[in-house]
Nucleic acid binder design. Sequence first.
DNA 1: GATTGTCACTATACTAAGTG
DNA 2: CACTTAGTATAGTGACAATC
Length: 200
Amino acid sequence: MTENQGRHKPVTLEDIAKLAGVHSRTVADAIKGTGRVAAATREKVLQIAKELNYVPNAAARALATGRTNTVAVLSGPLNEYYFANTINLLETHLTAHSYDMMLLHTRREARDLLSATKVSMADGVIIIGINLLTEAFLQAKSPSQPCVLIDTTDDFKVDHIVLDFGPAIEEALDLMLHAGKKRLAYVANNVNDSARDEVR
DNA sequence: GATTGTCACTATACTAAGTG
DNA sequence: CACTTAGTATAGTGACAATC
């Protein structure tokens, strides 16, 4: 039983360095695999790290590099297919590029993110759709924070991907009209002017 | 040239000392 | 006593220097 034996100080590069007889800087390079460490030294360091169950301290790494490899995502309600599907795709792509995804969907989380990104808790922010939550975030956001908005509008002064639902709506209308339907209703949240114009 | 070491730096929390 | 300020520690890394 090695667990629950009390709260131990985490194993650090310094601990490994002492056992390996090298500098902590060398241990960092060996573990990271930068290639500037001799093969024998690297093998020795990795062996000791494995024996000590060394786990890199992500907070310290973020502090030193200014990067967390984490992308914060603000979206609309996850019980809506569009948001759930988009988040699923985002996660797939972020994971493929060795990024973690921090999913936020409450005002409190968005507020925390505003302060958190100031200390590099997230490398950037992706916002899916404009709603009360994301709009408040965009208006309060510091200009230094990397941010991409995915929506049907580009009203906000951030990098953005504009979605054009026009062709899809037209295709849906054609299908309805060809089916002989005469009275059509359009049900949506936050219908903006551009989207409304598409429904003719 | 390859390998390793040194220094400075990061944001935050904590402690000690100084001041009113 | 309450508050402010300064110093220190933390874990890891970038840039550069030193050694063989």
